[in-house]
């Protein structure tokens, strides 16, 4: 899938709750309407990002993917700042 994004956050190697916390921080720096791509190795981040975007205002989860990067399984999340 070729989801466009405005900024990339490399959260590989980070563990709960850091992918979420850092994604939140980075998203805050974006303008409304912009998209943040997060690459994580933490399997829990799949459910974490779903939970975050369900609860928090001004955030939308556009897509989640499972990829292999440098031979490692990574979880990719696209979150959009909506307001």
């Amino acid at each position: 899938m070729n989801q466009p994004f405005d900024k990339l956050l490399d959260a590989r190697g980070m563990n709960c709750p850091m992918p979420l916390v850092n994604a939140r921080k980075e998203l805050g720096k974006l303008e409304p309407g912009q998209v943040l791509k997060v690459v994580a190795t933490d399997r829990g981040s799949i459910a974490d990002f779903q939970g975050w975007t369900k609860i928090a205002k001004n955030v939308e989860l556009l897509a989640q993917e499972n990829e292999t990067m440098d031979g490692v399984n990574v979880y990719v999340h696209y979150v959009k700042r909506t307001a």
Partner: peptide, 9 residues
């Protein structure tokens, strides 16, 4: 606490 704060709580 940090997770909740990141979620906007």
């Amino acid at each position: 606490a940090t997770g909740a704060a990141a979620m906007g709580q």
